[in-house]
Nucleic acid binder design. Structure first.
Ligand SMILES: [Zn+2]
Ligand SMILES: [Zn+2]
Ligand SMILES: [Zn+2]
Ligand SMILES: [Zn+2]
Lengths: 148, 148
DNA sequence: ACCAATAATGAGAATCATTTCCAAAAGTCC
DNA sequence: GGACTTTTGGAAATGATTCTCATTATTGGT
């Protein structure tokens, strides 16, 4: 399963890169494929396990570039190392289940009703603090099914 | 303003440390005071600015120990460096306004009603994923008043 | 297809927040 | 005080991430 990206996602990414005067090279496409195939945000180790022939320095460099362009989001859950996933523009708004035992991270979503309630409350809190919000980030901490 | 901790907080911390067979030394008390006096979670630099005579290695070591004992929470908002605050056991449940421009972090709270709605929804999501939740973490990302 | 001109690659070296070492200092208990 | 255990602090080590730079790939014009 080398390059397994839906055509429309691939096109969207191509547009974003071209707009930023960046090229959509094979290495970057393989990186995007690894992130797309992964369940939840991936560590560098997990990316390299999926694409072992991609050099580490290129993966790091391209993750940084893809993040600047708005294709990738970098996540730091706990000190050890960062995780990367496709940006919400390209996927869907979601949150993370973080296992405090094994460190694994999985995605989950809330209903539109709860998200609305939350957004309203957050907007109000922001207003009283003179803060201009652009996004929220919500994680659930606990123990995953495997570590049960 | 060297050692400015409310007596009951100080006592609570003393109990937690004794329970863990750790001593409540002067250095640890000064560290706790710096965290208590700070508005929002502090970086190591901010802690050292508040207590310049505390050696860096001792601050790091004691932050780790205080975190293990449940007195301090370590927060990583974005790759650069970690921030530390007193654990919610010793303060109150709250969330963070994170300025994506200057990196500053401030506290805020939601109403009990919103927190309940959220907790119910999160519990439901956790259940369907076989995940055992212990806490949630919610940040609002955007631009702070200073960066307006 | 060929040729510049420009951008991306990859292997290793450098960075820097954080951790670890270990001999000296401080606290504890009798 | 003396023996024992924990903590301290300065310096060295660690390790994820970033930077360097010579080589390679890609683009656009001819
Ligand atoms: Zn787990
Ligand atoms: Zn949400
Ligand atoms: Zn700001
Ligand atoms: Zn909450």
């Amino acid at each position: 399963m080398p390059t397994d990206i839906p055509t429309d996602l691939d096109d969207e990414i191509a547009v974003l890169l071209r707009r930023a005067e960046q090229r959509y090279t094979t290495g970057r496409r393989r990186l995007v494929a690894a992130l797309h195939n992964g369940e939840g945000p991936l560590t560098l180790g997990q990316i390299m396990a999926a694409e072992p022939t991609l050099p580490q320095s290129s993966v790091y460099r391209n993750l940084t570039i893809l993040e600047e362009v708005g294709i990738v989001t970098r996540i730091v859950t706990n000190g050890d190392f960062a995780r990367y996933e496709l940006a919400e523009n390209l996927t869907e708004h979601h949150h993370h289940l973080i296992c405090t035992n094994c460190g694994d991270v999985a995605d989950f979503s809330l209903s539109g009703r709860v998200e609305s309630t939350l957004d309203r409350a957050l907007a109000e809190s922001a207003r009283t603090a003179g803060f201009t919000p652009t996004a929220h980030r919500l994680d659930l901490l606990g123990t995953c099914a495997d570590c049960g």
